[in-house]
């Protein structure tokens, strides 16, 4: 059901560089405010948390509210000192965690 996240970051960087990371997860982000034709409110179902780790250490995280637009987009930075792997994780209201890994070579 969950769609694949889209992640953009450089494949290579120099030691000490601050790189830009762009992430987007296709997700409806149902706010819990919207009503259907029958007048019933669609129950809230959003991605409420995001984390980004590099080689197991936390780089950036976010708590998201229903006011974040559908297909949550997050662009942030990371300072890289060594080669390694970023792990991205999105947590849905239903408890599902969607993860993705991206590696980078640092010289």
């Amino acid at each position: 059901m969950a769609e694949r996240p889209r992640i953009r970051l450089p494949k290579q960087a120099k030691k000490g560089d601050v790189i830009e990371i762009r992430t987007l997860l296709p997700h409806l982000m149902e706010s819990g405010q919207r009503k259907g034709a029958d007048g019933k409110v669609f129950p809230r179902k959003i991605v409420n948390a995001f984390t980004c780790e590099f080689n197991g250490r936390l780089v950036f995280s976010a708590s998201l509210e229903p006011a974040i637009a559908a297909n949550p987009y997050l662009q942030f930075s990371a300072k890289v000192e060594e080669s390694g792997t970023f792990r991205f994780a999105w947590t849905d209201d239903d408890g599902t965690v969607i993860t993705a890994d991206e590696s980078i070579t640092v010289t």
Binding site: F60, A62, F76, S77
Partner: peptide
Amino acid sequence: RPGVATFRFTPMSGKADISTRMR
């Protein structure tokens, strides 16, 4: 509801800079 998001940075973030899209 007033909340939009809370972002948490670390020294490994390099910059306290974030872009997103909201409703």
